[in-house]
Design a protein around this nucleic acid. Structure first.
Length: 471
RNA sequence: GGCGGGUUGGCGGAGAGGUUACGCAGCGGAUUGCAAAUCCGUGAAGACCGGUUCGAUUCCGGUACCCGCCUCCA
């Protein structure tokens, strides 16, 4: 059995991972609030967990892992979006969920076993809140139900803060009905225009954190193995989840291991709309950056370090992946991944070292093991070859280029190198790279797409070239 | 103000108290009409200041700069 070690935020240590039940390893990842396209930062935890799940399935067996990732489909940002666009909440959340699936699929992220939606677990949330009130951890005030942080001595432990220090920071919302400024909302009243559900405290809706506590308990039980998300969720979201879950199930331990990924930057800066470097996964895909390339760039940096997205990295990733794809085309995968790759991943998901090991396999020419090992990282998946084949699917373009390549070959055959070189350069400008086989016919490849209008641009240039070279 | 992350060769990015990370790019060579591709080889580092040590890029302290959280943004 491979020994997996993970850095546990809860204990601040790298620990040997020991599942509560090796026949059913259980994980929960905080999913998106569905009001807009997933941005690039949203993709990082998804990819980290995707690799983690692949590793766990490799070690414990495909059927012995349960992976849950939620959709938050009740939230004031969604309400605001609905009000601003005149659409219904349902339309917005349905559309966004579909987008999310498309975009994460494109990154090669396998779907979780369960993707619960908050609105389907309102009953469980209300029940949990009732328990918290009964246990003396929550109180009702002016139609709200609040969690009493002073009732839970462990509050602040996960994020390494004390309630008193945070209050000193004085950036908490001041609400007169709170017993303590740090108390947070479990349930809040809804007016007629807001989505709401009946509850013992009147018509209202849940606070942000309770959904994850309710859904993880419902699907994974009150104790489970791994809970994760971006480091920005550590406080308050995860801290509050711990408080809710541990107080509602005092006999259970909630999440055993907490995994947090560091944040994403873009060209060295925080991704933000004001800096103009904000983009979604879909923006990149539409620009012609393959999902596999996005994944590769992400996995080249260890998850616990800040990751900088740059165009240079994306280009380098394209080069590497194309080479690997060329190497494994038509190859039968090996039965087992290389142990260097497995042990790198088992060491706190060191995807960077795992990728270095893939390079070694490539250098050694071991294509079958390269393929199998890469798939453990979700790379070189069966559907991924298309972009790297460097060929537009358009038959017309292919046959036109082929004809020009033959012209080029003919010029070389009669040793008219000047003309041949001119044609080669013109085709290069049209993204076509000619290369001479030893004595066979000319071969050609297309340069990696750089824009969504790639194919159109090629056609325009081909028109011009043909008018010069074909009679 | 409190808490946390980062700073490595041209670029990206790891591990390890003393031995080549790895990749991309570059350079040299082979091959080639020239390119492209491929193959072989190769130089290059550890923000700054102290400390511990026989020895630190790796441990400790401090400084500088960058970034994040504390504002229901992963």
């Amino acid at each position: 059995m491979v020994e997996i070690r993970l850095t546990n935020t809860r204990t601040r240590k790298k620990e040997v991972f020991e599942p509560l039940d090796p026949r059913n390893v259980r994980l929960y990842l905080c999913g998106p609030t569905v009001y807009d396209r997933a941005h690039l930062g949203n993709a990082r935890p998804v990819l980290v967990f995707d690799v983690l799940v692949r590793l766990l399935r490799h070690v414990y067996g495909a059927d012995h892992v349960t992976y849950v990732r939620n959709f938050t489909d009740v939230d004031d940002k969604i309400n605001a979006r609905a009000a601003a666009t005149g659409r219904t909440i349902r339309e917005i959340t349905e559309e966004t969920v579909a987008w999310y699936h498309q975009d994460m699929d494109a990154l090669g992220a396998a779907r979780p076993d369960h993707e619960p939606r908050a609105t389907e677990y309102i009953v469980q949330m209300v029940a949990m809140i009732e328990t918290l009130i009964a246990n003396g951890n929550a109180y009702e005030a002016e139609g709200h139900v609040l969690f009493d942080v002073r009732s839970f001595p462990e509050y602040g432990r996960l994020s390494g803060r004390s309630v008193d220090d945070m209050i000193a920071g004085a950036r908490v919302e001041v609400a007169p009905f709170k017993r303590d400024p740090m108390d947070f909302v479990l349930w809040k009243p809804s007016d007629a225009d807001q989505p709401g559900w009946d509850s013992p405290w009147g018509r209202g809706r849940p606070g942000w954190h309770i959904e994850c506590s309710a859904m993880s308990a419902a699907l994974l039980g009150p104790s489970f193995d791994i809970h994760g998300g971006g480091i920005d969720l550590q406080f308050p979201h995860h801290e509050n989840e711990v408080a809710q879950s541990c107080c509602a199930h005092p006999e259970a331990g909630f999440a055993n291991v907490w995994l947090h990924n560091e944040m994403l930057q873009v060209e060295g800066k925080k991704m933000s709309k004001s800096l103009g470097n904000f983009f979604t996964v879909r923006d990149l895909l539409d620009k012609g950056v393959p999902g596999e390339v996005i994944r590769f760039v992400m996995l080249r940096t260890h998850y616990r370090k800040p990751m900088d997205w740059t165009e240079a990295k994306a280009n380098e990733a394209q080069t590497i992946l194309s080479n690997w794809h060329e190497m494994v085309v038509g190859i039968e995968p090996a039965t087992k991944p290389a142990k260097e790759v497995v042990s790198a991943l088992a060491d706190d998901l060191n995807t960077s070292v795992a990728i270095a090991a893939l390079h070694e396999l490539a250098k050694a020419g071991d294509a079958p093991r390269l393929l199998t090992s890469a798939r453990l990282l979700g790379l070189l998946l069966p559907g991924d070859y298309g972009w790297a084949a460097k060929r537009p699917s358009d038959e017309e373009i292919l046959s036109r280029v082929k004809r020009l390549a033959e012209v080029w070959f003919g010029l070389r055959a009669v040793k008219d190198y000047q003309a041949a070189d001119r044609l080669r350069e013109q085709l290069l400008d049209a993204s076509v790279q000619l290369s001479a086989g030893r004595d066979g016919p000319a071969r050609f490849d297309f340069l990696t797409p750089t824009s969504s209008d790639w194919a159109k641009e090629i056609v325009v240039k081909l028109d011009a070239i043909e008018s010069r070279w074909l009679l």
